[in-house]
């Protein structure tokens, strides 16, 4: 009985051995076959298969990374804030100087102020100092909250951040990293803004060379969606606007759209994501409509 068991074990072990040998063979065989299959996928015979192209039409989509978490409200040292009241864009001034009298012949009319360039460069040419120099289209409550108030830190930070970052060219008052993807640009915000601005923007459709009329603005918003400070034309657009009256008109139309649409309706809890916005107005698709 025990012998027969031994025999069986021996035969078993022999079988196992044989199986081992076979499995190694099988392993190589399998690897070779796999390699052959992979190799076969790499080589094709030209025109061997003619599959009808029934793929649906290409639908262009924008791939946008969505942050899993919104950023924690950034913490910035409050002393970094330096309001830049000299921003001259909107200070209303009246050119009190009487333009040189123009003679009776109507065509001799001359423009009293010299040709203006960018809005911000216009003002120095006015002779008298601004009549109401500090008036800005910023909501009134902002002005009253300038004092440091422990209970009001957040409000202070929210409203002052844009001015600080703008005044310092994005170097000084940058907040620390919060939780979540710092570059998270959420498409719902972009869409919401785009839709709102589209209602207000009357693009320069009749002007020649619409491809030259693309203008970019940097815009800072208050938490209530109002415009925090006069929107700044991007440097490149500013140069173009100074050179061409068409670009200047396009830039002014875009700026009017920004103001007309305010206040913007955006989710207040994600203010940190839409506080600082670059708006690019591109009229090319509107031409001929």
């Amino acid at each position: 009985m025990s012998q027969s068991r031994n025999q069986r074990r021996t035969s078993l072990s022999a079988a196992t051995l044989a199986g081992d040998r076979r499995s190694r063979l099988g392993l190589f065989g399998s690897a070779a076959l796999h390699a052959a299959v992979i190799a076969a996928t790499l080589f094709t015979w030209q025109h061997s298969l003619q599959i009808a192209d029934e793929s649906p039409p290409v639908v262009p989509v924008d791939l946008v990374t969505i942050g899993e978490k919104t950023n924690i409200a950034p913490v910035a040292p409050k002393e970094d804030f330096t309001p830049k009241d000299e921003t001259p864009v909107t200070a209303p001034t009246v050119d009190q100087t009487t333009p040189p009298p123009v003679q009776m012949a109507a065509p001799d009319v001359e423009e009293a102020p010299p040709p203006e360039t960018a809005p911000s460069e216009r003002l120095p040419k006015s002779v008298p100092p601004p009549v109401v120099p500090k008036q800005r289209p910023r909501p009134a409550p902002d002005q009253t909250k300038q004092k440091f108030d422990v209970n009001n830190i957040l409000a202070l930070l929210n409203k002052q951040q844009p001015a600080a970052s703008n005044a310092r060219g994005k170097t000084g008052a940058r907040p620390h990293a919060g939780i979540g993807d710092q570059n998270a640009m959420t498409m719902d915000l972009v869409d919401a803004l785009r839709n709102q601005i589209a209602q207000c923007w009357s693009p320069p459709v009749g002007a020649p060379h619409p491809e030259d009329l693309i203008v970019a603005f940097e815009l800072f918003l208050n938490p209530d969606g109002s415009v925090a400070q006069p929107p700044q034309l991007a440097a490149q657009s500013r140069a173009a606007a100074a050179a061409s009256p068409y670009v200047r008109a396009a830039a002014e139309a875009a700026r009017r759209a920004i103001y007309t649409c305010a206040p913007y309706k955006l989710p207040a809890d994600r203010y940190s994501q839409w506080r600082d916005i670059t708006l690019v107005f591109d009229p090319r698709k509107m031409v001929g409509q």
Binding site: R194, C200, A253, L279, V280
Partner: peptide, 23 residues
């Protein structure tokens, strides 16, 4: 490096559609 790297991203919005209306 962390301090130099820009922290908060700017929202970039391309406006290609408008409403043609008189001013």
């Amino acid at each position: 490096l962390g301090a130099i790297a820009p922290a908060a991203a700017q929202l970039h919005v391309d406006v290609t559609q408008g409403t043609i209306q008189p001013m």
